[in-house]
């Protein structure tokens, strides 16, 4: 309990003093996780929508691969992205290994299957005839997709929350492709692991509280956004008030 208390106090002082080292790590964490989530949404939402709505040969295989990807261990992703980006690897000449860009790539690989799979599920949960109804209203293919995405927005926001949760919490891939280099690729998760290995449990605990706070704040914003769009039926509202 002493370590927890010390960690809390330490976190308080680090934040109050706006410790430059910590602020740098927080900013990089925010940047890398935000970009990785954005890339995974950019890939996962259209791909999930396509998989939910289109029939094509091999669709089940692709869906199986996406579902497998949803449980992909971060260290495996880190290893494969490292192989690709190492100087001797196929993409080595890009010089991305041990850079924030490499971390974004690795984390996007982790989050994209989550966003794809959950988007697909959200679209598939819409009433089966809604697609036909929207087409019958004269929608072009683009208008159809956009309308269905809006209808599935609760599920899609859940997909984005899951994707963000996947990247902000992982440490294996980030340290393998980023290398935890001070002022360059050190993020909250890798810094926490490093402080634990050094025996600085109070600092590690402080970083973990900051990480938790960051994760909570961003997820809370997304959750508020998600729940604001939810239409609660009148009867249910009354029931909630009674409860």
């Amino acid at each position: 309990m002493e370590a927890v208390w010390q960690g809390l106090v330490q976190a308080y002082y680090l934040l109050i003093r706006l410790d430059p080292g910590v602020m740098e790590v927080v900013a990089l964490t925010f940047k890398v996780c935000g970009l990785a989530t954005a890339v995974s949404v950019f890939i996962g939402v259209p791909l999930g929508t396509f998989l939910a709505l289109k029939e094509f040969p091999g669709r089940r295989l692709v869906i199986s691969l996406v579902n497998t990807g949803m449980g992909l261990p971060p260290v495996v992703v880190g290893l494969w992205v490292s192989f690709l980006l190492w100087r001797s690897g196929p993409l080595g000449r890009l010089g991305l290994i041990y850079t924030p860009a490499a971390m974004v790539i690795a984390q996007a690989f982790i989050a994209a299957p989550l966003v794809t799979g959950l988007t697909m599920a959200a679209i598939q949960q819409l009433p089966a005839r809604l697609k036909t109804q929207v087409l019958a209203l004269g929608a072009s293919p683009g208008q159809l997709y956009w309308t269905l995405l809006k209808e599935a927005r609760l599920g899609i926001l859940a997909a984005i929350i899951a994707g963000f949760g996947g990247v902000i919490s992982e440490v294996g891939a980030a340290s393998m492709v980023g290398g935890n280099i001070m002022h360059q690729t050190r993020v909250l998760t890798t810094a926490t692991v490093m402080e634990v290995s050094r025996g600085h449990f109070d600092i590690a605990m402080a970083l973990s509280f900051i990480l938790l706070g960051l994760a909570f704040s961003i997820t809370a914003v997304l959750t508020v956004l998600q729940q604001r769009t939810r239409a609660v039926p009148d009867g249910r509202k009354k029931l909630l008030r009674l409860l």
């Binding site: 009433p127 036909t132 087409l135 019958a136 004269g138 072009s140 309308t147 809006k150 209808e151």
Partner: peptide, 19 residues
């Protein structure tokens, strides 16, 4: 068929209204 489809309208058994 989009231009033709835009000259038609369909009402289904379920109202299938958007949210």
């Amino acid at each position: 068929a989009l231009s033709w489809r835009r000259q038609l309208a369909v009402v289904f058994q379920e109202a299938l209204l958007l949210d």
